[in-house]
């Protein structure tokens, strides 16, 4: 009998496992916050968390409603500004990982957090970009976390807020950008990117989910290797930290 956990909890744990001790991580709003604090409180105590609005390495004891809530700035090593984090830290290449949520992504990990619909016709503005473009452009690698739905994993997205591998191959490098997306974590699977074509590639499927459910809820066909392992489920201690310490009010975990 395995542990009970929600898809969001598995996503947060999978995200935390991507982060290594000692890394500098620029963290976006939502699940990336939970995943980063989880990593910091487990295997990566020397990781540095950055919030784009100028918060470096906070140790919150209360939950905030967003990154502009002083609750998530508590005991920050430095409180500076957008310009400092995006300009002098990120653009100098000092950030190892950008960790972003989003509305839509495509086979090359280009990410939309700006609007849905057709910008020439009917569309709805959403919350982005904030610093998402800068983070995806300048971090050494980017982790994307979003729900696994055909309307979110699309062949072509409504708006490119944050460049991934653009049109694949070496198009990102030719555009003068370093890094690129390394992982896309959904509530059904984890994807990486094939090194040559830079196309999204299935690397693990969450326990209890079938390959058909993964592929049937996507707007494009990812590369699928002959054998796809199951994603490692969360450990009891990770679930306990998420539920009791990091997100007790379930503000991020839904």
């Amino acid at each position: 009998m395995g542990l009970d956990y929600t898809p969001s909890e598995l996503m947060a744990v999978a995200g935390a496992r991507e982060l290594q001790d000692g890394e500098v991580v620029a963290v976006g709003l939502g699940l990336p916050v939970v995943a980063s604090f989880l990593a910091k409180q487990t295997h990566a105590p020397n990781m540095t968390i950055l919030f784009e609005l100028g918060v470096i390495d906070p140790q919150p004891i209360h939950q905030g409603v967003g990154l502009a809530d002083p609750r998530v700035w508590y005991r920050a090593k430095v409180l500076s500004s957008f310009v400092d984090i995006l300009g002098t830290v990120l653009h100098r290449g000092l950030v190892d990982v950008g960790f972003l949520g989003g509305l839509e992504t495509d086979p090359y990990g280009n990410l939309n957090t700006t609007l849905v619909g057709d910008p020439r016709g009917e569309f709805r503005h959403m919350v982005g970009s904030g610093g998402a473009n800068d983070i995806a452009s300048c971090a050494r690698r980017t982790i994307i976390i979003l729900r696994h739905e055909a309307r979110k994993l699309r062949k072509a997205i409504s708006f490119v807020t944050s460049p991934g591998y653009i049109s694949g191959g070496d198009s990102r490098a030719r555009s003068g950008l370093r890094g690129g997306p390394s992982r896309v974590i959904t509530d059904k699977a984890i994807f990486g990117f094939e090194p040559e074509s830079k196309k999204m590639k299935l690397i693990s499927i969450h326990p209890g989910i079938t390959l058909e459910e993964v592929l049937g809820n996507m707007g494009f066909a990812p590369l699928v290797p002959p054998k796809v392992p199951a994603t490692e489920p969360p450990e009891a201690s990770q679930l306990q930290l998420i539920r009791e310490t990091i997100d007790p009010k379930r503000m991020y975990m839904g």
């Binding site: 609750r71 700035w73 508590y74």
Partner: peptide
């Protein structure tokens, strides 16, 4: 009023 230690 903000708590002087917490800042909020």
């Amino acid at each position: 009023r903000a708590d002087p230690v917490l800042g909020y």
